[in-house]
Design a protein around this nucleic acid. Sequence first.
DNA 1: ATAAGTTCTGCAAACGGTTACACGTTTTTG
DNA 2: CAAAAACGTGTAACCGTTTGCAGAACTTAT
Lengths: 332, 332
Amino acid sequence: MPINMKSIAAQAGVSVATVSRALNRPEMVHPATREKILAIVEDLNYAPNRFAQGLSTGKTKLIALVVPTLNNSFFGQLADGCQSYLISEGYNLIIYSYEEYGHKELGIIHDIDQRMIEGLILSGSGFYLDTYQEMLNKIKIPVVLVENSPETTGISSVYIDDVAGMTMAAQYLINQGHKQIGIIAGPEKMLTTDRRIKAVRNVFKDYHLNLNEKHVIFGEYASLESGATALQKLMKNRKPPTAILAFNDILAIGALKAAIQLGLKIPKDLAIIGFDDIPMAAYYSPALSTIHSPSLDLGKHAARLLLEKLTEADAPIKKMLLPVELILRETT
Amino acid sequence: MPINMKSIAAQAGVSVATVSRALNRPEMVHPATREKILAIVEDLNYAPNRFAQGLSTGKTKLIALVVPTLNNSFFGQLADGCQSYLISEGYNLIIYSYEEYGHKELGIIHDIDQRMIEGLILSGSGFYLDTYQEMLNKIKIPVVLVENSPETTGISSVYIDDVAGMTMAAQYLINQGHKQIGIIAGPEKMLTTDRRIKAVRNVFKDYHLNLNEKHVIFGEYASLESGATALQKLMKNRKPPTAILAFNDILAIGALKAAIQLGLKIPKDLAIIGFDDIPMAAYYSPALSTIHSPSLDLGKHAARLLLEKLTEADAPIKKMLLPVELILRETT
DNA sequence: ATAAGTTCTGCAAACGGTTACACGTTTTTG
DNA sequence: CAAAAACGTGTAACCGTTTGCAGAACTTAT
């Protein structure tokens, strides 16, 4: 015996239409009838079948989140943030992590139709500068970008204040007397990479310093190994850096490990500042100085912005900038 | 102009039924017709609407995964593993992380009906011994358990060889001459905790040693902080341990950090072995000795077992035990 | 008491597929 | 060469909702 509207209707002695209305537009049905129906609904713990709803309304309350990988606290927290907000609003989240999934096409464009996904939250490094707009053009549903280009027009996005973060970090290091600063960046074509590196260059300019191009290493997005090899390469320079700016904590920790293995004293021989402030940063040994970014909030705000676009026809495009904080621990 | 079956049918000059058959049971339709239809389908990049399919077949190809949190590489990888396998089989995954979501009821039971979720992969610590069976009884769809009780009857499960892992670790420490071994366990009522602690007790018995009950600390599931406080408590004992077995790497790293802060030399004053071998383990400083468990595979196998149950009516209950490995690094 | 509103409810079509059944066509068989 | 079997396709019911439309029942105004 399936518990569907029909059975509710039968029990209440009304038509399915009335049950539907009692649920969706209560003011349209007579109080007495409504009470009766709702009591039965409550009693049977009935909830409408979303598929049928989806078919008939075109609304499925399904949102997709795209992340590079879940094997990184930053995205894990981001996902948790989206999740919790969406669930509270009656939406569900499908997460696509393209590292394991295999990048090609992401298949999402396909699923958007098949699954009738209503909105998309795009995060991470997968969306490179050159293929970026092209990709977005193919998507016909509302999109919110996380940690991506504020330059992109027409799309709401939530991002953290990269520029402020990098600026603070670079200024701090320079004020500490560092002249040779190594940059361990993410992939070259990534938007965040771009933004952050420009911020560093600007600080250097302000201080009338020169950024040694050999001290800039592009690598994988967030891999411990990539951080380690970057550091090794940096230290082989004739004038090795005395401080490192890493574009995320995973890279920073990889670098930190490599530095320790090279026998460097941290922070005396080498100072390191990361980015993100993943939980592990405070617990590394030595504890990593880093830029704190509110990843959970990032997710929540992204989800909120998306739902706004979904439910309010005239929701304006918003660019939301979340503040960051420089947290000084033991690596500086 | 929506691209649905109707439009395909119109273009091919056949009925929707034939299109449906061409897609689902190709052998039933005349090769020539089939070719024609498939060509159009290909051309328009058509894919059937899953909601409509779901409504009429009852199959939605939606699987849910329950994890405590995504803010832990172990579960991140687990999720990635499930994801990649499921996607390759045409399924989609909805992830519920109950830490952020709020534990109560998990709401999943609700969503299972609403969303017509076909199968469930349950992982993690949320399912405690006492409420465990009760919870499972409420679920009417196929379930696969990850890292959970092999004692549970009637349910397929994938788990790692806790017992072998803990046994190896304990034996190793004892053979190294440690007599006072501290245990930093997860929550007391968790099934894995139970299994692992029994394994340790057995090793002690085999060696005719006594496990000091004061050396066993139960804590949160996987929190750095909980690991740190556990260690502090342990070291306050009159006879503090000279080695630590932590039930996961997060706890281990928390403990490690606390130990370093107490000025202990690792591994001379204190040896530590973790569990899971998250990527960070190798990159911690000192690198953490740990039991490697194949979290990605865990996910893939769980997903595979679930699909077997879904598609093969008589799929047998399977208990799959994945082997672990003791990896000795710098903390032993 | 009747006309004109208001409420409230039911009917039925639609959403986009799947599939049992029936029917016309072709092939096989004795 | 007719009867039987096999094949290919269309018709229509169904899955569980939502919602425009129409009509019944009740108010209110005249």
